[in-house]
């Protein structure tokens, strides 16, 4: 068992004016583990994702990332170029809206290949072959490789974003409501895809979702946030089936049974 964490945060705090977004948040993530962060809108879960991934700086607290050589990096003290390099290689970020990360004026193959080129790959034929392979892995027909993303459906765009993110084989992927805003049938397909890829590639994931069913199906562990505070954390099925904190009990009991 890998005992050293991939990512560890201690005492993260951040306020927007008078509104606390994070209050003394601790978080740990081990290699290959899926950690779900759940809570209502405004609970601070997306802020936590942005801080853990270095996209925002906390007012206090520290986040450590352990690179493949075992060297620890202080995410909030890293020079910008080093952080950007991390986001292009070891890390990935899947946005709720794929348009936030895809380049809509570049072909599907170009969107996937771009991450490889950013890592220094130059052989056009190999980049294209790799891009087509990844389109296939996210169930997009190879003959769409030269099409522009604007001709894609919402579900296809999300799958394209996942291909673009995973093509560099990141060890750690941050996901912000990856199935939000999609039709339920498309959601199921995407869930299945994410579950399979994450298990097969042994990727660690911090998954922000308001959907407890998504958390149950994908996550090993779960953190429940309310007004910037982590009120409960533990095994996903234990927290959802036997919630201890009043807020978690409210969240779980408020879900409609389909």
């Amino acid at each position: 068992m890998a005992d050293e964490t991939l990512l560890s945060a201690r005492g993260l705090s951040l306020s927007f004016g008078a509104i606390p977004a994070l209050v003394g948040v601790d978080a740990d993530l081990w290699p290959g583990e899926v950690l779900a962060v759940v809570g209502e809108s405004g609970s601070g879960k997306t802020t936590l994702l942005n801080v853990l991934s270095g996209r925002m700086a906390p007012h206090s607290g520290v986040t450590w990332y352990r690179d493949p050589e075992g060297v620890l990096h202080d995410v909030h003290a890293m020079p910008m170029p080093a952080l950007r390099a991390l986001h292009r290689s070891d890390w990935g970020f899947v946005h709720q809206n794929p348009r936030d990360s895809l380049r809509m004026g570049v072909t599907a193959g170009g969107n996937v290949g771009e991450r490889l080129m950013a890592q220094g790959m130059r052989h056009y034929g190999r980049i294209r072959a790799e891009a087509i392979d990844w389109l296939r892995q996210v169930e997009i027909d190879a003959d769409r490789v030269d099409h522009l993303p604007r001709t894609f459906s919402g579900g296809m765009l999300q799958r394209l974003q996942i291909a673009r993110t995973l093509v560099t084989h990141p060890r750690l992927v941050f996901m912000d409501e990856p199935t939000g805003g999609l039709d339920v049938s498309v959601q199921a397909r995407l869930l299945d895809l994410i579950r399979g890829l994450v298990a097969r590639l042994d990727i660690a994931v911090v998954l922000v979702t308001h959907d407890l069913a998504v958390a149950r199906l994908l996550a090993h562990r779960i953190m429940v946030m309310q007004r910037g505070v982590v009120v409960e954390t533990g095994l996903t099925d234990q927290v959802l089936d036997d919630p201890q904190h009043p807020y978690t009990q409210l969240l779980v009991s408020s879900v409609l049974q389909a």
Binding site: A188, R189, R195, H220, R221, L235
Partner: peptide, 25 residues
Amino acid sequence: PRTVVRVRADTLGYVSQFLRVVPRV
């Protein structure tokens, strides 16, 4: 929790009354 995940994977099996899985698998 992550120790329990390991124990479940290798030692402790459970057959629940109801099947709960990703819809498309």
